[in-house]
Design a protein around this nucleic acid. Structure first.
Lengths: 207, 207
DNA sequence: CCCCTCAACTAACGCTAGTTAGTCACCGTA
DNA sequence: TACGGTGACTAACTAGCGTTAGTTGAGGGG
């Protein structure tokens, strides 16, 4: 009767740096970086705290790794979408869609980035915030282009791009894989919201 | 030469419980509850850490006070708006407007509520989350009513109400009193976005 | 003029955090 | 079978946290 391997589900697979990162991700997303102790991450992996140091350099490094990978991925997504071309409505739809999709499929990463980027220390924090700004400005440029062409109607492209970005970000705060809607469906709906915000009524609202 | 009273600006006014709460609010919003030490709050007030206990019961109490007052205020706002009557588009506009306005004028409170409600302990946390759900459901009911009357067009009232609420919440993350737009202007714009999300093109988009 | 209160202080406590050092068992390979 | 490396462990350290105790000085009312 091997009773107590029930601490968390996968307690006795080999511990790797990937699994440490994943455990940190889950707990950082749940309780925040400062609210999570290494002992909790260790406990989730069925291991004592110092053993973590065989697979990571420091707690802070885990945070950096998570935020670095995630912000880089966001920009990558966006550039792929923009380079595929199309008119502003197409680009905005696809940019919002991929951003929304990411926040449904990578909830934990998104929560950590949005909550704990401010806990990075200095050279890194600024460069992560610069990535966020780059995405922000790029999206704003798409909206401004649409306004110039007369297909979008907004008073302030900056305001609209804030709204659309944060709209997508918020998906991470409620989405569940077990819910009634798939990530794809939610992403489609939210991309539709994005178009509505800039004054475009999408041709089809049916599912 | 009384050199060093430059720690923060208002260092030598009498310390009151209101000022302690305000200092905590600022720092919790900046660094998060777990990321803020009492010594930092004390330092901002020009006082040693234990002196804070003349004006508060515990660090945790500060958090509770902030979140309790804020969530109560949100519901109060909403009920006032709903009780004023009107058709669903009117109610939705005004509900979004007041919610957005609050997030522009009470940024710090909003940031703390959204980041650190999970750090409350148990009887209180659930009741604060219940308040959030109450607001959520009430807003959803307004949208559902609009859909039934055929003035709103959305696939899922739940999705739309999530979107609108989080849209307003996000204002706290970028708004600045020194920016180009006043809280009133931002609230108007965002309330317009809310109507667009549910498929209503507002009659006037001009400022 | 004394005394009481209020709010600041210093000192210290208990605890927990992140991290390091040093040890030991296992396991694949020579 | 001996060996080397990998990765777990225990023990321990330092630093910082929130909090309490006890003290001191200033201000106001009898």
């Amino acid at each position: 009767m091997p009773a107590a391997s029930s601490e968390r589900i996968a307690a006795r697979d080999p511990v790797t740096s990937a699994r440490v990162l994943d455990g940190a991700l889950t707990l950082f997303a749940e309780r925040g970086y400062h609210g999570t102790a290494l002992s909790e991450i260790a406990g989730a992996l069925g291991v004592r705290t110092p053993s973590l140091y065989n697979h990571m350099r420091s707690k802070h490094d885990l945070l950096e790794a998570i935020i670095d990978a995630t912000t880089a991925g966001v920009l990558e997504d966006f550039h792929a979408v923009r380079d595929a071309g199309g008119d502003p409505a197409d680009v905005l739809f696809r940019a919002a869609r991929v951003y929304a999709y990411r926040h449904a499929t990578h909830r934990r990463e998104a929560l950590v980035v949005n909550r704990d980027t401010s806990s990075l220390d200095e050279p890194v924090r600024s460069s992560m915030q610069a990535r966020r700004r780059e995405h922000e400005h790029a999206l704003r440029a798409v909206i401004a282009a649409g306004v110039e062409q007369g297909v979008f109607v907004v008073d302030s492209p900056a305001l609209a791009s804030f709204a659309i970005r944060e709209l997508c970000v918020s998906i991470a705060r409620w989405f569940s894989e077990d819910g009634p809607l798939t990530a794809d469906q939610v992403a489609d709906q939210y991309a539709g919201f994005a178009l509505r915000i800039v004054g475009v009524q999408p041709t089809s609202t049916a599912s």
